[in-house]
């Protein structure tokens, strides 16, 4: 309840110029395979995500949610259409610049956490900083501060195997935010967690990740967390069927 009130009072930047959108996709198509085995994963998707917004992509399995966030995050190239990220068309950038852009401006939270088992919580959370060339000690120190803000104070030196599922996902949240990205992409962040833990992770994510300069795109099946969204985009068969305003 308290959470919903917070969401309702937070202003969302509504761009006048399409270049001011956090994510602006027009006519995105993407197919896998060729000939008779070709599968059309995206069939002309239009999507806009505004700065300061938390948008959820929902829909049945295989509807193209994961493909869409892969395109949005510059991991996959679309076949047709245009996708701008804060006005930048990633598909026009050379490969190495696109990789660098991703490292600097995008944070990721994965369904399976994907924490490196041999690294401590702080080292795992520090990875984006290391990728951006920050020295190890400085990066770990900064990551430890962020871990404290997601409620993992004193657990900086714990290995993933010594953490619960909820704690691991909070480390993953810290990892996604440690380098202050402009876009955070989350893939089923609560599907491996129980309800209480999932809600806690979402609360932490919303509190820390959403601000006027940053947008969140969350792919989820988990209806328990729909209330955290500003808008919900319903996908089906490679297209967005409708967008529901949740404010």
């Amino acid at each position: 309840m308290e959470q919903q009130q917070e969401v309702a009072t937070r202003p969302i930047m509504t761009p006048n110029d399409p270049k001011d959108a956090a994510v602006l996709c027009r006519g995105i198509t993407k197919s896998y395979g060729s000939g008779e085995t070709q599968v059309k994963a995206l069939r002309g998707v239009d999507l806009e995500v505004r700065p300061g917004e938390l948008l959820m992509l929902v829909g049945p399995s295989g509807c193209g949610k994961t493909t869409l966030i892969s395109v949005v995050a510059g991991i996959l190239d679309q076949d047709e259409g245009e996708c701008l990220l804060f006005g930048q068309n990633l598909s026009l950038l050379p490969q190495h610049e696109r990789v660098r852009y991703r490292g600097e401006h995008i944070g990721f939270v994965f369904q399976a956490f994907n924490l490196i088992p041999s690294l401590t919580a702080a080292e795992n959370a520090a990875i984006p900083l290391l990728i951006n060339g920050i020295p190890m000690d400085e990066a770990v120190q900064k990551a430890a501060l962020l871990l404290a803000s997601v409620g993992l104070e004193g657990r900086e030196h714990a290995l993933p195997s010594q953490l619960s599922g909820g704690q691991q996902q909070r480390v993953a949240v810290a990892r996604a935010l440690v380098h202050s990205p402009r876009l955070v992409v989350c893939d089923e962040p609560t599907s491996a967690l129980d309800q209480v833990t999932g809600i806690r992770v979402m609360e932490g994510l919303k509190k820390l990740a959403v601000n006027n300069d940053r947008a969140l795109v969350i792919v989820t099946h988990d209806a328990r967390i729909f209330s955290f969204a500003d808008r919900i985009a319903h996908m089906n068969d490679g297209a967005i069927e409708r967008i529901e305003n949740n404010l």
Partner: peptide
């Protein structure tokens, strides 16, 4: 491999 994919997604260059 999964972790190398994570590194790639997060912006690690091929050279690194």
């Amino acid at each position: 491999l999964r972790y190398f994919a994570v590194f790639k997604a997060m912006g690690t260059t091929d050279q690194t």
